[in-house]
């Protein structure tokens, strides 16, 4: 069968499920409320018309929102015994993983696009640096896609959605804060390694307008690894 047909079927089903349950609305609403709060707070507190601090805050907010979005991806399928259907349809395992991943990424992109409303007052009353904003958003999207890939993998490991979320949150926080360990390392190699693993440090580069290839490659590599692990794990369960 056509590769795209199967992938599209899974994707469409995911999108229907998101919008017929409260999850998508809840996640988007909480994220937008949080972002709106940080945006106004940062602008009025500093009086500086940039997105820098707001993007930084959005990154941290993402670490707690993504697990809520991803916890159900596979756990709910195990629970409803629909995994048995999914794994016996003429659909390849990677297509199931990709279809579901793209579904979650779509929700994430929708909420990202919705935050652009903050740019209107910024451009009306300030003089922001467009390139920094573009680079910051590219970083934010890469960060979000990475968090989703990790969350989706953990969702495949357990039937329990809460457990899936509870594993994902510390892992994402770990990747975020691992950069702080830099100060504790004496060896140059370890400092480098820790810096390379840190979501926060890579993301900070993007916010500063530094669109560096190692940041892009790092996020893409983590996404690819998580999705590959996810697919292999489901294969192994057979």
């Amino acid at each position: 069968m056509n590769t795209m047909t199967a992938l599209k079927a899974i994707y469409t089903k995911e999108m229907l499920s998101y919008f017929r349950s409260p999850i998508a609305y809840f996640v988007i609403a909480v994220f937008l409320l949080g972002t709106g709060y940080f945006f106004t707070y940062n602008i009025f507190l500093t009086g500086v018309g940039t997105m820098d601090s707001t993007l930084q805050n959005m990154g941290i907010l993402l670490l707690t929102i993504v697990p809520v979005l991803t916890m159900r991806i596979f756990s709910a399928e195990y629970n409803a015994r629909t995994m048995e259907l999914l794994m016996t349809l003429p659909v390849k395992t990677w297509q199931v993983v990709m279809g579901k991943y793209l579904g979650a990424v779509t929700i994430f992109l929708l909420m990202t696009v919705a935050t652009w409303i903050n740019l209107i007052p910024l451009y009306l009353y300030g003089n922001p640096q467009t390139l920094n904003i573009i680079s910051g958003y590219i970083g934010f999207i890469l960060l979000g896609m990475t968090c989703i890939a990790i969350g989706q993998f953990f969702s495949a490991l357990t039937e329990n959605q809460i457990v899936a979320a509870l594993i994902t949150i510390p892992v994402l926080l770990g990747f975020w804060f691992v950069g702080h360990l830099q100060q504790l390392q004496s060896s140059m190699m370890l400092r480098d390694l820790v810096a390379h693993l840190s979501f926060a440090l890579h993301f900070a580069d993007f916010i500063r307008g530094l669109l560096r290839s190692d940041g892009v490659i790092f996020f893409l590599a983590v996404i690819a690894s998580a999705l590959t692990l996810n697919t292999s794990y489901l294969q192994l369960r057979r």
Partner: peptide, 28 residues
Amino acid sequence: LGYLPESPPLYDILDVTSYLTFVARAKG
């Protein structure tokens, strides 16, 4: 292959038509 598992694998959130449409699409 058509397969009915021990417990019917339904997506509770979908209506019957959407559910059957999904399965038909996934079956190509």
